[in-house]
Amino acid sequence: MTTLTNPKPEFTSTCTLSDCKPRSKTVRKIREFCIISGLVACGLFSLATTLTIIIVLAKETYSFFRLDEVSLADFFLGLKWAPLLGAEHHFGIWPLISGTLQVTFIGMCVAIPLGLITAIWLSEYAPEKIRRVLKPMLEVLAGIPTVVFGFFALTVLTPSLQFLYEGFEVFNVMSAGIAVGIMCLPIVTSLTEDALRAVPKSLREGAYGLGSTRFETSTKVVTPAALSGIIAAFLLAIARAIGEVMIVALAAGSSPPQLSDNVLNAVDVTSETQTMTAYMVQIFLGDVSNYGPEYLSAYAVGGTLFVMTLALTIIGHFIRIKFRQAYE
């Protein structure tokens, strides 16, 4: 009805020509260019972040090694770490590294077997209903802040360990390590499960067709096929454990195992320890003077930590790319 009485719609169609004029190609090109430059700036921001991390750590580490008290050989070969107390300061990184490795090793002893088995079960065995309940539970576990795990280690794990064996100190490697393991468990489980589920069904069907049991299929066919993804998941979990801060700051104590006294201190899990991250926290929270050797040593330790985690991530990345088998 309206179109019959009102001829205006025809007018608007002729008007569009003049409307088109300001939307010329140059305006569109300029707008497109501005937006793309903005996006490129966003992309370069992440590159700048990495570069700034490297520059900051390298600069302060360099000024640390310029000091008279420290030498490169002492730092990388020294077995005694005593930066704050005593007449003579010792900066040997190995006690801190062994503290970190203690916690990481115990954590991985908890997280890798449990995570791997849970992932195999979730991906190969569990009925869909159970999966739908368990996956969100794992996400809840993954979303718990690390300070909570630290509190848990200090107030629940340590008393339970002391109940089992009286030799455990108030701050000990074992409870911090177990807490780190619980923290890493959802990472290992969900990444491993993703890798297992990415294996095509035809491989499983082939194994079943040859008469394998489910156990044989999952351990001899599916797990080897997903191995690159699984190893990448493990490496990522190790990197997380090495860089963990709050758990070790709360539950592991504040003196690293002095390897110069006894090398076996590195395997003592009942006494306290200090990781690289916990040392950095101690320095940045404490009242040490800026630009003294103690303060700068935190940057050197941070640089070592950064290099270690960077190496793990890059190795994991290349394992995943290089050994990724393309099925079908």
């Binding site: 590159l47 990495t50 090495i242 940057y299 985690t309 793990l312």
Partner: peptide, 25 residues
Amino acid sequence: SIIQLNITNLAGVPSIVYGILGLTA
């Protein structure tokens, strides 16, 4: 591809290193 790899790396950097970066930058 460098930006892509870099983001994978940044995801693995320990958070305390970001703290140092934030303090300085």
